[in-house]
Write a protein that binds this DNA or RNA. Structure first.
Lengths: 93, 93
DNA sequence: ATCGTTTATCGTCTATAAACGATAATACTA
DNA sequence: TAGTATTATCGTTTATAGACGATAAACGAT
């Protein structure tokens, strides 16, 4: 399933994306409710819509999260393929 | 065994520390040679001594790495207790 | 006490991150 | 087509990161 075997640089980028409390919590939340959310995330955290959108952008760029446009909303979800590769990498450290 | 149950903030800090290719590679290296190294790390990477020292400082501050002064040298090693908690956290995501 | 080795810290510079408000873009709905 | 809701982007500000050279600090050996 994994298209590419990820390298150290890629994992570093994912770690960097997870290197902020809000972004870790966003990922935890996306995992918990496997149904993807979008604007609800903004309501959960005490930050502005633009700030959360920026955090989601970083998470998306790292690959750990994907975003799909559904009508006027954007639906975010964890890329479990990437997450599993991350789990595998960390487990083998 | 773990003195404290780590929280999200702590893990975010560790992720942040791992959020740089050089620092990931330093940790990988420290794990591989479980005997701790110090100045050798500087020789491995194409960065100045001060830059590597700064990276090691960040790793140490996150808790994933410990440094012990041995004479004129400083011996760095991975804190396996912390690493195991990290592994456990990631595995349960 | 001085010297050489090793590591940490300081000061500087440039680049990126983090947050915000304001605005643009998108796409339903009336 | 106009309006509304939702999200992304822009521009700005402040803070932190990342790199370096230079210097200081610690220690062992001469």
């Amino acid at each position: 399933m994994p298209e590419f075997r990820m390298d150290t640089e890629t994992f570093a980028k994912i770690f960097k994306a997870l290197g902020h409390p809000t972004r870790v919590k966003i990922v935890e939340h996306l995992i918990k409710i496997n149904s993807c959310v979008c604007g609800e995330i903004v309501n959960i955290f005490p930050f502005s819509q633009s700030t959360i959108s920026q955090h989601l952008k970083l998470l998306k760029e790292s690959g750990i999260v994907r975003g799909e446009i559904e009508g006027p909303k954007t639906c975010y979800c964890v890329d479990f393929d990437v997450l599993n590769q991350l789990k595998n990498y960390v487990a083998n450290l």
